[in-house]
Every structure is written in C-alpha cells, then in structure tokens.
C-alpha cells in the first residue's frame, strides 16, 4: 500500500494548507491574462475564500450545519 489514505480531516487540512497557493495562481493568471478580465478578480477570490468554508464544512461533516452558522 504505497498511496497514503489519509483520514478525511487530515486530507482536508492539507487541502486548506495549499489553498493559498492555488488562489495566488488564480490572481497571477487572471492578472496576466490577455483576455482582459481583471475585473473578475475580486469576485473570484472572494468565492475561493468562501470555498475554504465549504472545505471546512465537509472536513467535519457532523458539524457542517453549525459551520455555516458563521454567516
């Protein structure tokens, strides 16, 4: 068995840990893009940050409804 089978929580935490880099990719890519859609950045980044809440909610399934109570 060579592939790690991390538990759900650990897996989600690793995902959260790498999310910053992924969002940075999005910002960098959109900024440099020739399609001229820099205006999209604030919304896209905001939604990505909201996505972190979604990850958090699925990390602790049993508490998911309460995590949404943040809002």
């Amino acid at each position: 068995m060579v592939v790690r089978k991390p538990g759900g929580i650990r897996r989600r935490l690793i995902m959260l840990g790498t999310a910053g880099g992924s969002i940075a990719d999005l910002i960098r890519g959109t900024w440099r893009s020739e399609s001229g859609n820099r205006w999209l950045l604030p919304l896209a980044v905001f939604l990505c940050v909201f996505g972190l809440v979604l990850i958090l909610a699925t990390t602790v399934e049993a508490l998911a409804p309460f995590i949404y109570a943040i809002f």
Partner: peptide, 18 residues
C-alpha cells in the same frame, strides 16, 4: 443517517448563502 441529515442541512444553508 445523522450525517446525511447534517449534510442535507448544510447543503440547504450553503445554497441559501450562495
């Protein structure tokens, strides 16, 4: 079953927020 209900509630709340 509880987890399914919790996920269902979370899904409804998530949809509402979005």
């Amino acid at each position: 079953r509880y987890l399914r209900v919790a996920a269902g509630i979370a899904s409804v709340v998530g949809n509402a927020v979005l």
